[in-house]
Design a protein around this nucleic acid. Structure first.
Lengths: 219, 219
DNA sequence: TCCGTCATATGACAAGGTGTCATTATAAAC
DNA sequence: GTTTATAATGACACCTTGTCATATGACGGA
C-alpha cells in the first residue's frame, strides 16, 4: 500500500500520479513499464515517488484495487439476484465481466493485467488470507462474500474449505479463460467474445454436472 | 531457441553454460535473474552470450525444455497403463509429478517456474499451436498426445475442440494447484504434499462427476 | 608460405532503470 | 523568530541489457 504521505497529498497531485500510472500500466505489461515513465508523465521528481510508494508493485496493486471495485459490486448483485445459486450466477457474472473487460474503457489495462498475471498473484486474487490484502475490497472480501452467500443445498459439498476450494477453482478458471482470449489475440488468431463466453459456460457446465459419461456416472 | 552457433560449441562449453543457467534460474524467479550472473558463473564473455541466445527467455525456455522431458514420458506411460481412462490416469500422473516437483532434485527450479508462471505461458503450456513451440517435446506434443489417447467413450464430450478445452482446463488446474502450494509456502503457512494431492484429486472428482447436488443433477 | 574468408570471441560502451541520501524547502507550533 | 516535523528534490552509485568494432583462429587455395 502507498505510504501515509501519499494520502496526505493534495487530491490533485494524487490524481495526477494515478493518471500517469494508469497510462503507463495500460501502455505495456508490468515488466516493461517503468517508474521513470510514470514520474515523467506526472511531473514528479524521482525522490518524491519513493516518499509515496515502496516500489513499482506498490503503485500497481493500489491502482488495480481502485479499478476493480466495480467488479466486486457486480458479483454481489448477481449472487443476490440468483439467491445464491452458484452456477447461474457465475455464468451471468462471467458474461457481464468479460464484456466489460474486453470492450470497456479499461480494456488496454486489463489486457496487460490478465495476460501477464502470474499464478502467485492469481492465488491471492482467488482469496489469500495474507495480511497485506486485508484492506476493504481486497480479494479476500470476494472470497468471503461468496463463502457465505452460496446456497450449498444445491451442491454435493458442504464444508467451508471445500467450498473455498471450489471458489478458487472457478476464479482461476475465469482468469485462465480470459488469459486464453488475450493469448490468442496476441498470437494473431483472435477469438470472439461470444466464443469466449461459450467456453466459460462450457467449463461451468462441466464442473456442475461432470464430464463423465452417464454409463459411468456416480461413484 | 538457441542459435546454431551454440549447438556447434564444444559439449563442455555448452554444459558449462547450461549449468550456470540452471543455477541462476533455481536461485531466483525469472525477473530477478540476470544474464550477467549466468555468464559470470559460466566464465563466458557478454558478447558471446548474444552469439548463442537471443535474450534471457531464449535460454530459459530451452533449459526448461530439457528438464521437462522426463515429465512427458511419465504422462505417456500413465495414459497407456490406464488405457486412456482420463481421470484415473490424471490422478496418478498428478500424484507422481507433484512428488517429483516438490521433493525431487529440481525442486528449487520448479518453485520459481510455477510460482511466477504467467497465464500467457500457461496457455502455451496447455497446448498452443504457435510455431515457435513446434520443436520435439514442446507442449503441443503433450496436448496432441492426450487428444488422441483419451478414451472418449467414458466422457459425455466427443468433439476435438471440446476435448481440447478439457485438456487445457486440467493442465491449468494442475498448474494452479501447484502454484497454490508454493504460494502458501511463500507466505509461511505451508501445506503438505499429501494435502496437495487430496486437493488435486478433489478437483478431478468434481470435474468428472460434477459438484451439483443429485436432486438437481442433469439438465 | 601467404592470403582471403568465414565463423567465433571479446569487452568496452551507450542507454536506461532502480533505490538512496544529503540537502532544501515548507509550514505549523511555540 | 526559532524550533520541529514533514515533504521535496535531484545527483549518485550501481545494475542490466543489447550492440558493435575489433581481434582471433582455422581452413582452403594459389
Amino acid at each position: 500500500m502507498p505510504k501515509e504521505t501519499f494520502f496526505r497529498l493534495p487530491k490533485a497531485k494524487q490524481q495526477r500520479l494515478m493518471d500517469a500510472a494508469y497510462q503507463e500500466f495500460a501502455r505495456a505489461p508490468f515488466n516493461e513499464t517503468s517508474i521513470s515513465n510514470i514520474i515523467k508523465h506526472a511531473g514528479i521528481p524521482r525522490g518524491s515517488y519513493y516518499q509515496y510508494f515502496d516500489d513499482k508493485s506498490d503503485l500497481y496493486f493500489y491502482l488495480l484495487k481502485t479499478v476493480r471495485q466495480r467488479t466486486v459490486l457486480t458479483l454481489q448483485q448477481v449472487m443476490t439476484k440468483h439467491h445464491g445459486d452458484l452456477f447461474p450466477a457465475m455464468s451471468e457474472f462471467f458474461g457481464k465481466t468479460i464484456t466489460a473487460l474486453v470492450h470497456g474503457p479499461h480494456a488496454a489495462l486489463y489486457r496487460n493485467v490478465f495476460l501477464h498475471m502470474d499464478f502467485h498473484s492469481a492465488a491471492k486474487m482467488a482469496g489469500s488470507k495474507a495480511p497485506f490484502l486485508k484492506p476493504p475490497h481486497g480479494h479476500q472480501e470476494i472470497h468471503d462474500f461468496l463463502l457465505t452467500s452460496i446456497d450449498r443445498s444445491r451442491l454435493r459439498i458442504r464444508a467451508d474449505d471445500e467450498v473455498s476450494l471450489l471458489i478458487r477453482q472457478i476464479v482461476g478458471m475465469f482468469i485462465q479463460t480470459i488469459a486464453y482470449y488475450y493469448s490468442n489475440q496476441a498470437e494473431g488468431k483472435p477469438i470472439t467474445v461470444a466464443e469466449l463466453k461459450r467456453r466459460g459456460d462450457q467449463l461451468l457446465d462441466w464442473l456442475q454436472f461432470g464430464v463423465s459419461n452417464d454409463d459411468h456416472n456416480h461413484h
